[in-house]
Write a protein that binds this DNA or RNA. Structure first.
Length: 937
DNA sequence: GGGCTCACG
DNA sequence: GACGTACGTGAGCCCG
């Protein structure tokens, strides 16, 4: 519908709403994370009341909320001091601005702002346009600067006083009609906006003068006639200033509008949008009122609140000024920074290096930050040239020698009284450790975030900065390039490096400042202090120690695998009737199901046949074509060898460190949602063990001469934790009695005496036990056991009958997740479950994950506690903790200390839950030892 | 770079 | 009544 006669446009002054809301309400904060929210709350209430009050017969046909985009506009060019004496925005208001825009859109109202223009100008242009089209306009505001627009079908409405402002009110206020308001304002000036006007002339006098002379230009032209000397002089001497003032107060009807009036047509709020928004904001009452108004059920309170990661976040009062970052290139300048750090008592720091692999990285520079915005970068190892063949390898001029930097910084970095803050400290502390500096004590913003919001979002610096500081840090890509032309950080120019590196320290410090109070509010201080922070030095030691891997063993195995694979490949090609890439699932699927015409080919969503191990195993076992059966079996063999060779025997050799002769993995602490660690580069948590052939790879993990590998692993830790958490007497008793837990389960379920247990029945019970931990489903169990679904469901039903606590545990866990947006481990770790209220297939996933997380997470917490206590427990022994594999710790120990190590470490692991949690089931640890990992496990 | 496959707990 | 499922990871390879 074209905007025209009969249309009624409402223009809401957004900034007026915001300020009124801000000052009308106490400084409210969002309960879940402390986000300042008072202005947004008031703003939403005002918008809602507006919507409710404008449903009647005189309802608008079109509506928009208009905001100021930025403080700098064309008026600053005319008069630089314009609005210059405005007080600084309150610190807690600015972060709410983006949320008011979101709120507007959530109410399904057009949200308008244009860079370089004030809201008033946009309102002016829209009013003119609407009026010229023959429509009516109501401006929802009481701002006197907008009164010049009144007339010809344009009125204002003061929402607070619930009163219309028309010509009469304007006349009352300014003594002139709307068309002369700017003249009066130009003369009177405005102290709030710092519009100069004529000195000594206020609104009253200005109105008199305009009434007498008709308009401003006439007045100025005839100023000499004015009788009162003061007034006359004020006008004569300030004519230019008055003209400038008029340009400042005159609203610009020609402000460009990049939308049509038609697009502003009134729309009903969408319950699916507005309710979640209000719920995330944690506006309980308003959520309910809006829901009632829309005649839908209100979402369960607190349902989204916890899962809502602080979205659009508190922007900072301070911005990031890259130009202010200092390049520290003299000992004197560095000394100043050291003094600042000592005065502060803490420092955020970040290292720049030549590699993401801490064991191979060379230090290029260090950045420091002591206060938001106060940061520096110390270039140390930057090199000339672009890294090409002819580039010089010499150090760039104007850097500090490493020795000088270390001499000054080492005392600070090792000072007990100075807290060192970093994002992923393990990386930086390892770099420094390799240079002989033991960084302590430490804080880590990545781990704080993980403790608070694990499961909600990732914890990399860029993401945290955007979420919590509303700031996008300088990306590294443009500095380093990508692909073949990529360079390392030492080839980055120092000027660029200063901006990038110092900003990282700056961001880190600001995150830390923000996270400290948040940590308490979220209630995870204990988790951070006992399960995250102290783990850093422990993992550093393990990673730097590395594990000795015998290259020759791996190399021999690689050759043997290659030979077997070649033979298999020839046979496979023969069976297939021609050569093809055995490693290509796509080609294999076409051979099996198209060329050989085997039944059972199922295409996935990408249109490719599934050729996973389960599919091939079925074909190998019961395929109707003999060639197909053999082919599938050979491909399975080939795949196993291929996997072992490429992922393990080949790849592991490339990870042997040239200096140490050992393999140094890296553990990510904040990677897995449940609290587990993850091992990367290489992953040493998935070295084969299940197949005989694969297990032999562990023979390459060896102890040096005179030393032994000791493996200690928790026995059935997750089932024990389940027995405790779900309080299942039968399970607990079985553990207390030291029974075979799977056999016991089988006996209970199938009424088979333990003495007559068969391995097959036990195997089924074992699968069910694991299924319970994973959030069992009939389908999943059926597939795992390869039995009919109904039968699997029967097993599950019987299991729940025999162990009724399990069902209750599952229901309670899911209910808790739905109510709180997270589940918890016994040690208080929160694992957020944002998808728990999802609809559709995602719901099943989320429920099973929620059931599994407290169990897996508690086990992860237990072994973390053991690891943290381990250095003290084995101090004095010639032993090192090398690896963690979720429920196993691998040690390298002198032959003479093996027994003592086992005693100490075993005790530490078995009592790791104490005293924080009193488990009603004992944890038991089994030990093994030998010259290599295969023998020790 | 996403999908598939497969190694571990 | 249908949907599509075991939980948590990382790495190597293929292929567009």
């Amino acid at each position: 519908m074209t905007f025209g006669k009969g249309c009624h446009l409402h223009l809401i002054d957004g900034s007026a709403f915001i300020f009124r809301a801000y000052h009308a309400l106490p400084p409210l904060t969002r309960k879940s994370d402390g986000l300042p929210i008072g202005a947004v709350a008031g703003f939403c209430n005002m918008l809602f009341r507006y919507v409710e009050n404008n449903k009647g017969p005189d309802a608008p046909t079109h509506v928009a909320v208009i905001f100021d985009h930025s403080s700098k506009t064309f008026r600053n060019e005319i008069y630089p001091a314009y609005k210059a004496n405005r007080p600084e925005l309150p610190e807690d208001l600015r972060p709410q601005f983006p949320l008011t825009r979101e709120a507007t859109r959530a109410f399904n109202i057009a949200c308008i702002e244009t860079e370089g223009y004030e809201a008033d100008d946009i309102i002016a242009a829209m009013s003119c346009k609407a009026r010229n089209a023959g429509g009516r306009v109501t401006i929802i505001s009481s701002d006197k600067d907008l009164m010049q627009l009144i007339g010809d079908g344009v009125v204002m409405f003061d929402a607070m006083k619930n009163k219309t402002i028309d010509r009469d009110e304007v006349f009352e206020k300014f003594g002139v009609g709307p068309d002369r308001v700017v003249d009066v304002q130009a003369l009177a000036g405005d102290s709030v906006d710092n519009v100069p006007g004529a000195p000594g002339i206020g609104i009253k006098t200005a109105a008199l003068l305009i009434q007498e002379y008709g308009d401003l230009e006439t007045l100025l032209a005839r100023a000499g006639e004015i009788k009162q000397p003061k007034r006359r002089e004020a006008l004569v001497n300030n004519a230019e200033l008055i003209r400038i003032s008029k340009r400042l107060v005159q609203l610009d009807c020609d402000t460009p509008l990049d939308f049509s009036l038609e697009s502003l047509e009134v729309r009903v709020p969408d319950a699916e949008v507005i309710l979640p928004f209000l719920n995330v904001m944690e506006f309980r009452t308003l959520t309910k009122r809006v829901a009632d108004s829309l005649k839908v059920a209100a979402p369960v309170a607190a349902l989204l609140t916890e899962t809502a990661a602080p979205v659009a976040t508190p922007a900072e009062a301070l911005t990031f000024d890259h130009a202010s970052y200092e390049a520290v290139t003299t000992p004197e300048a560095l000394a100043v920074w050291v003094a600042r750090i000592r005065e502060r008592g803490y420092v955020a720091f970040d290292t720049e290096t030549t590699s993401l692999d801490e064991m191979r990285a060379d230090l290029v520079g260090i950045s420091l930050c002591v206060d938001a915005g106060v940061a520096c970068y110390i270039p140390i190892g930057h090199r000339q040239g672009g890294g090409d063949l002819f580039a010089s390898d010499s150090l760039t001029e104007g850097q500090l020698p490493l020795a000088e930097v270390l001499a000054q910084l080492k005392p600070v970095l090792e000072d007990d009284a100075i807290l060192k803050i970093a994002q992923n400290m393990k990386y930086d502390a390892k770099i420094m450790a390799r240079l002989g500096v033991q960084v302590a004590p430490i804080a880590d913003t990545m781990l704080m975030s993980y403790a608070m919001h694990g499961g909600l979002h990732n914890h990399g610096m860029d993401e945290l900065s955007e979420r919590y500081l509303s700031h996008t840090p300088i990306p590294i890509k443009p500095l380093l390039g990508s692909g073949k032309s990529a360079v390392t950080f030492d080839r980055v120019g120092i000027a660029d490096a200063v901006k990038y590196a110092a900003e990282d320290a700056d961001v880190t410090l600001r995150l830390w400042q923000k996270f400290q109070p948040m940590l308490h509010r979220v209630g995870v201080t204990t988790v951070y202090e006992t399960l995250e922070r102290p783990l850093v030095p422990v993992l550093m030691q393990m990673e730097m120690a590395g594990v000795q891997v015998d290259r020759n063993t791996l190399s021999r195995m690689s050759s043997a695998f290659a030979q077997k694979m070649a033979a298999l490949e020839a046979e496979i090609h023969e069976l297939a009737g021609g050569p093809f890439n055995v490693g290509s699932p796509k080609q294999l699927g076409e051979i099996l199901f198209d060329r050989l015409g085997l039944p059972g080919g199922e295409k996935g969503k990408t249109g490719a046949y599934a050729t996973g191990a389960d599919v091939l195993e079925d074909i190998a076992a019961e395929g109707v074509v003999e060639a197909g059966r053999t082919l599938a079996a050979r491909v399975l063999d080939w795949r196993q060898l291929s996997k072992l060779k490429s992922t393990y025997t080949d790849a592991l050799q490339t990870h042997i460190h040239p200096d140490t002769g050992r393999v140094h993995t890296s553990y990510s602490i904040a990677g897995a949602n449940t609290g587990r660690l993850a091992s990367t580069d290489p992953n040493l948590q998935n070295i084969p063990v299940r197949s005989e052939e694969g297990r032999r790879i562990r023979e390459a993990f060896v102890a040096p001469v005179g030393r032994v590998l000791v493996s200690l692993d928790y026995s059935q830790i997750e089932l024990r934790i389940l027995a405790h958490m779900a309080n299942i007497p039968a399970l607990k008793q079985a553990f207390t009695d030291g029974l075979d837990i799977h056999a016991m389960t089988a006996s209970e379920m199938f009424n088979v005496p333990m003495a007559q247990m068969t391995s097959d029945i036990r195997r089924q019970a074992k699968a069910i036990n694991f299924g319970v931990i994973y959030g069992i489903s009939g389908f999943g169990l059926a597939r795992n056991l390869r039995i009919p679904r109904a039968e699997a469901q029967g097993f599950i039903d019987r299991y729940f009958e025999r162990f009724p606590g399990i069902r209750a545990y599952m229901d309670d866990t899911i209910a808790f997740a739905k109510a709180n947006g997270h589940v918890q481990t016994l040690f208080g770790r929160k694992i957020h479950t944002p998808e728990i209220n999802a609809k559709g297939p995602g719901a099943g996933f989320a429920k099973r994950a929620a059931i599994n997380a407290p169990i897996q997470g508690t086990a992860a917490d237990v072994i973390r506690r053991a690891m943290i206590r381990m250095p003290a427990a084995i101090a004095g022994l010639d032993a090192k903790m090398l690896l963690q594999v979720h429920d196993e710790l691998l040690f390298e120990v002198a032959e003479t200390d093996v027994e003592r190590l086992i005693t100490a470490a075993k005790h530490t692991m078995e009592t790791a839950a104490d005293p924080a949690v009193k488990l009603s089931v004992h944890l038991t640890v089994e030990a093994g030892q030998g010259p290599n990992w295969a023998a020790a496990h």
